[in-house]
Amino acid sequence: MGRWEPDARGRLQQAAMELFVEHGYERTTTADIAARAGLSERTYFRHFPDKREVLFDSTHALDTLVVEGIAAAPADAAPLDALAAGLRAGAAMLHGLGDHARARTAVIASQGELRERELAKMSGLVAASAAALVERGVGEAAALLSAEAGVAAFRVAFDRWVATPAGPPLPDVVDAVLAELRQVVAPA
């Protein structure tokens, strides 16, 4: 395939995931990824600044969906309910990635530097969510507390979903874990 072929970014992501699964993250180079995708290494670096970032490209899309979902929640929604609307939107996107998301999780779990990057990206999701809640008129402390708790619940839900491929869709798992969170903080 030539570099003028469509979806170079997607081909690089697919090639990276295949190679990380086949040979491991450490033994895969950006040159290997580019070659598998039928592209030059220079083209790789036009799309991704380093080898790690090919795994985290969807993070921006996740942040955007969550923030848009928070903004679209009913005006009278409580902070955690508004956040839940955003988290469900992000969960729907990740659910659509299916086995790719599960393979990505395994690759990230295998490397300390990738786990660290994942935590940094989740911290960014917390900050973006808190800012979106503040935009809705929620006080800064309540917004940050809601965002921290909600994103933690989202991570628990995602881990459950990854562990049970034949289980319910990710948005449903997110709803269930948020219900557990509500029960923990305000038992009936």
Rank of each mutant, 00 (worst) to 15 (best):
M1F: 06
E5I: 09
R9A: 12
R11I: 03
A15R: 00
A16T: 00
E18D: 13
F20M: 05
Y25S: 09
T29I: 08
T30L: 03
A31G: 08
D32R: 10
A37N: 05
F45W: 06
R46M: 12
H47N: 12
H47Y: 14
E53V: 05
V54A: 00
L55M: 08
D57V: 13
T59A: 13
D63L: 14
T64Y: 12
E68N: 15
G69C: 06
I70L: 10
A73Q: 06
A73K: 06
P79E: 04
L80F: 05
A85C: 11
G86T: 10
A92W: 10
L97R: 14
D99S: 09
R102C: 04
R102V: 03
A103N: 13
A106K: 14
A106G: 14
A109R: 11
G112P: 04
R115N: 12
L119G: 12
L119A: 15
M122Y: 08
M122P: 00
M122F: 10
M122A: 13
V126S: 08
A127W: 06
A132W: 02
V134M: 11
E135W: 05
G137E: 07
L145P: 00
A147I: 01
E148T: 15
A149F: 05
A153V: 05
A153G: 09
F154L: 08
R155C: 11
W161P: 01
V162C: 08
V162P: 00
P165A: 06
A166V: 10
G167K: 03
G167T: 03
P168G: 14
P171E: 07
D172H: 10
D175G: 12
D175E: 15
L178N: 04
E180T: 15
Q183R: 14
V184A: 14
V184D: 11
A186P: 09
A188G: 15
